[in-house]
Simulated assay, not measured.
Amino acid sequence: MGTRHGRATGEPPDDPSELLPETSILSLDEYLEMQAAIGNRTRFEIVYRLVRADELTPTELDSKMDLDDSTLHYHLGKLQDVGLIEKRVRTERDSDGLYTYYRSTVLGEAILEHGVEELLRREWDFTDAYDSTT
């Protein structure tokens, strides 16, 4: 183990940016932007649905979430800007025409599973630990 970040001593660093390794692909600010993006209820639900469905069209997302087109595309754009989702445009026309598909990135899946969903799972643990009826 390296000594940067106080890992050898188990102490946290003074500067939070030192929590990342020197070779980190993203900066602390970029990670925080991802957290802020998924902290919005609509964007959380979009990433949640994309992770579970693998990929969806905006039309499919709209039918599941009942959002107007401009609101949906605004949130899709925000999520794409921070790297939590990506889009793919089909090159072949199907019976309904050309489609744009969205899917979660690896970072989107990770922030969902190890961030928000982990906190939600811990809520169940807290409820069980402090349940006076058992």
Rank of each mutant, 00 (worst) to 15 (best):
residue 14 D to M: 08
residue 16 P to Q: 13
residue 16 P to H: 03
residue 17 S to W: 02
residue 17 S to E: 15
residue 17 S to I: 06
residue 18 E to Q: 13
residue 18 E to T: 14
residue 19 L to M: 10
residue 21 P to N: 05
residue 22 E to R: 01
residue 27 S to E: 09
residue 28 L to W: 10
residue 29 D to R: 15
residue 33 E to F: 14
residue 34 M to H: 02
residue 35 Q to F: 03
residue 39 G to N: 09
residue 40 N to F: 03
residue 42 T to M: 14
residue 42 T to Q: 10
residue 42 T to V: 15
residue 42 T to D: 14
residue 47 V to H: 15
residue 47 V to F: 11
residue 51 V to A: 03
residue 52 R to E: 15
residue 53 A to E: 05
residue 54 D to V: 12
residue 56 L to V: 12
residue 57 T to P: 08
residue 58 P to Y: 07
residue 65 M to Y: 01
residue 66 D to N: 14
residue 68 D to F: 01
residue 69 D to M: 06
residue 71 T to Q: 10
residue 73 H to F: 09
residue 73 H to G: 00
residue 74 Y to V: 07
residue 75 H to N: 07
residue 77 G to A: 00
residue 77 G to W: 01
residue 78 K to L: 04
residue 79 L to R: 07
residue 79 L to V: 01
residue 82 V to Q: 09
residue 83 G to M: 08
residue 84 L to Q: 01
residue 85 I to M: 05
residue 86 E to Q: 14
residue 89 V to P: 00
residue 92 E to Q: 05
residue 93 R to C: 03
residue 94 D to F: 07
residue 95 S to N: 11
residue 96 D to N: 11
residue 96 D to Q: 11
residue 97 G to N: 04
residue 97 G to E: 12
residue 99 Y to K: 13
residue 99 Y to T: 00
residue 100 T to M: 03
residue 103 R to G: 06
residue 103 R to E: 05
residue 104 S to Y: 10
residue 105 T to D: 02
residue 106 V to F: 13
residue 107 L to N: 06
residue 107 L to Y: 08
residue 108 G to W: 09
residue 109 E to T: 11
residue 110 A to I: 04
residue 110 A to N: 11
residue 111 I to L: 08
residue 111 I to D: 03
residue 112 L to W: 10
residue 113 E to T: 13
residue 114 H to T: 00
residue 115 G to E: 00
residue 115 G to L: 09
residue 116 V to F: 13
residue 116 V to Q: 06
residue 117 E to R: 12
residue 118 E to N: 12
residue 119 L to A: 07
residue 120 L to S: 03
residue 121 R to H: 09
residue 121 R to T: 11
residue 122 R to G: 02
residue 123 E to G: 05
residue 123 E to S: 10
residue 124 W to E: 08
residue 124 W to C: 02
residue 124 W to T: 01
residue 126 F to N: 15
residue 127 T to Y: 14
residue 128 D to C: 05
residue 129 A to L: 10
residue 131 D to G: 04
residue 132 S to G: 02
